[in-house]
Nucleic acid binder design. Structure first.
Lengths: 137, 137
DNA sequence: GTTTTTGCAAATTGTTTGCAGACCA
DNA sequence: TGGTCTGCAAACAATTTGCAAAAAC
């Protein structure tokens, strides 16, 4: 269940994805645990499931906007369940790579807040994505 | 020359990196062209230079904060010269992957501005990086 | 019963490494 | 000259693909 009380089965149905044992397991893991998680971490959690399958499922989930991909600059893709009612960002330690959640959302203020919390040398990476005019036709 | 009139040789010296032909070429390419560029794109521009060398140079540049790495969610790392006087972000078309520069810097307003410019379905990815308290000791 | 998904193994792609020779200071 | 950088080839790691069997609808 997510914060809107939606079950994994419901979410899969909504996305028009077939409800297989493995998809259900992966989605449930992502819904119940606050990531983001690497493919490796997801694979470890799912009993008897091939890496290729994890990749394929996550790709589907991403296409259907069920999960979103995070990049923390270490060449490892991480994924988390896209809880629509819970917009947030992350703060990653450049040394130990611990991931924490940042609830607040204004750049300058956020950086100051993180500094106040004890983080040193805070920076950020921000990219926008959209469909450009040429591609809309 | 960058916006502060700094030459590639000067920038390398400042960073305490030796001034080799290849490093100079790569840095000049990055200073004169507004990226970000993939390793592949950089490699194409540098005459008679091995991929391994491009990777090694860029890694050095990144360590010395001469370039910064961008991730656009397609598993390709891109790099651009870190022009200190030119803080900006990017807008990437989810369809054709064209990269444009976003000069303005406030999230909501930026997204609105991009929509006004004709981009559809604009979203963003933002991550913070810092050194957490435990790692500061 | 047809379509979609999965496991397996192999291929592909992006990145890193060891080493000997070339280059820089 | 001594240390650093480079090219080459090989290693490695993350991701993707083809195909036949299994599961979903």
């Amino acid at each position: 269940m997510d914060k809107n009380n939606r079950s994994s089965t419901y979410v899969l149905k909504q996305a028009k994805l077939s409800n297989t044992k493995i998809r259900k397991s992966i989605l449930e893991f992502l819904m119940e645990n606050h990531g983001p998680f690497s493919i490796d971490e997801i694979h470890k959690q799912i009993f008897d499931c091939d890496y290729a399958t994890v990749y394929r499922c996550i790709k589907k989930f991403e296409e259907c906007a069920i999960v979103s991909r995070c990049d923390f600059g270490d060449n490892i893709s991480r994924y988390e369940y896209k809880d629509l009612n819970h917009h947030h960002h992350h703060i990653i330690c450049r040394s130990c790579h611990k991931i924490s959640t940042v609830e607040y959302c204004f750049l300058k203020e956020m950086e100051k807040m993180l500094t106040d919390q004890g983080y040193k040398d805070v920076s950020h990476a921000l990219e926008f994505f959209g469909i450009c005019q040429e591609c809309q036709n």
